[in-house]
C-alpha cells in the first residue's frame, strides 16, 4: 500500500537524515520503527505526509506519487494519512470535540470549519469514536483539562475521524507511564485490526514494539539495518541498531502484570534509549 524507494533526506545544514530508504508496507500491517534518537525515525514518517520534504526518491501511497504533489492535491493526499504525535499535539484551548472534529478539516470548507458547522455524519462519527477510545464523558472539556493518556486518546480519535488508510504514529507513548503506554498501544493495535489500517509507529520502547507490532524495522543513522519479525530481534541485532550495550537485563524493568498478548519466551525486557 505504501512504498518508499530510494528516499533520501538531507537537511540544509548538510546533515544526512535518511539514506536510500526502501520500504514497503502492505495493507493492515502494523510496523514499528525503532532506532536511537536522531536516527531519522521522525524524519521518515514526516516525509510520508510531507511535513518534511524528502530530498529525493519516491513515496507512493496506493497509486499516488506523494513527493510531487502540491497545494490542493497534497491536502487531498494528507486526508488518507492520519498522524498521532508524541506530545499529543492537541490544541489546548479548544474543546475535546473541536479537537476531534479538526480531523475532518481536509474535507470541510473554511467557513463551515470556522463556524464549527460540521456535517452531521462527521459529528456522529466523532461521538462514536470518542466512545470507542473511552472518552464519552469528556466531550465538552477543554483539551488541557485532560490527563496524558486521555489526551492521546483524543489524538487517536482525531486521527481516525480522517478515515485514513494509513496511520503515522510518532512516539505515541514517550510521555506516558508504562501502564497507559500499553493501553494506548493496545488501542492503536485494535483499531488498526478493526479498520485494516496500515501503521508506522516510531517507538523508543523496544519491549512495547515487540509486543504490539507485526514487523520491526531498525533505523540507524538514517539507514535501515534491520527489517523482520519481532521474534527475530535479538541482542546482536539490537547492538547493530543501537550500539554496544548489555541487552540481557531481564528483570531490570518492572513488567506490569496482566498484558493480554502472549509474549515470546525469549523476551528481552529493555530500557528505552534516551529522550528524543
Amino acid at each position: 500500500m505504501l512504498t518508499l524507494s530510494q528516499v533520501n533526506k538531507r537537511y540544509p545544514t548538510g546533515d544526512r537524515a535518511l539514506t536510500d530508504i526502501e520500504l514497503a508496507l502492505p495493507r493492515g500491517q502494523v510496523m514499528a520503527l525503532i532506532g536511537p534518537s536522531g536516527a531519522g525515525k521522525s524524519t521518515l514518517i514526516r516525509c510520508v505526509n510531507r511535513l518534511v520534504e524528502p530530498s529525493s526518491g519516491s513515496i507512493r501511497l496506493g497509486d499516488t506519487e506523494l513527493t510531487r504533489l502540491s497545494g490542493r492535491e497534497l491536502r487531498r493526499a494528507r486526508r488518507a494519512m492520519a498522524m498521532i504525535f508524541q506530545e499529543y499535539a492537541l490544541v489546548d484551548r479548544l474543546t475535546v470535540m473541536e479537537n476531534v472534529l479538526s480531523g475532518r478539516l481536509g474535507q470541510v470548507g473554511f467557513w463551515r470549519s470556522f463556524l464549527r458547522r460540521y456535517p452531521a455524519d462527521a459529528v456522529t462519527e466523532a461521538f462514536r469514536l470518542l466512545e470507542r477510545v473511552g472518552l464519552p464523558h469528556a466531550i465538552d472539556k477543554r483539551a488541557d483539562a485532560l490527563s496524558g493518556g486521555q489526551r492521546q486518546r483524543v489524538g487517536i480519535a482525531r486521527a481516525l475521524l480522517q478515515d485514513p488508510q494509513l496511520l503515522l504514529v510518532d512516539e505515541p507513548t514517550a510521555s506516558l507511564d508504562p501502564k497507559t503506554s500499553r493501553q494506548i498501544m493496545r488501542l492503536i493495535r485494535e483499531l488498526c485490526a478493526e479498520r485494516e489500517l496500515g501503521a508506522i509507529i516510531n517507538i523508543h520502547d523496544v519491549a512495547l514494539a515487540r509486543q504490539f507490532a507485526d514487523r520491526i524495522v531498525g533505523l540507524r543513522a538514517g539507514e535501515i539495518v534491520f527489517d523482520g519479525k519481532p521474534e527475530a530481534l535479538n541482542a546482536e541485532i539490537l547492538t547493530t541498531i543501537y550500539g554496544e550495550e548489555d541487552w540481557d537485563t531481564q528483570g531490570e524493568v518492572g513488567d506490569e502484570a496482566g498484558a493480554h498478548t502472549p509474549e515470546p519466551a525469549t523476551r528481552l525486557a529493555l530500557a528505552s534509549g534516551g529522550a528524543s
Binding site: 511535513l51 494528507r78 481536509g106 473554511f110
Partner: peptide, 19 residues
C-alpha cells in the same frame, strides 16, 4: 506541533491559522 497536527489532516492555510 499543534500546527503540524492540523496541517497533517489536510487542512487549508486559513484553517491551519484558525485551528
Amino acid at each position: 506541533t499543534p500546527v503540524e497536527a492540523i496541517s497533517a489532516t489536510g487542512a487549508g492555510r486559513l484553517q491551519v491559522m484558525n485551528y
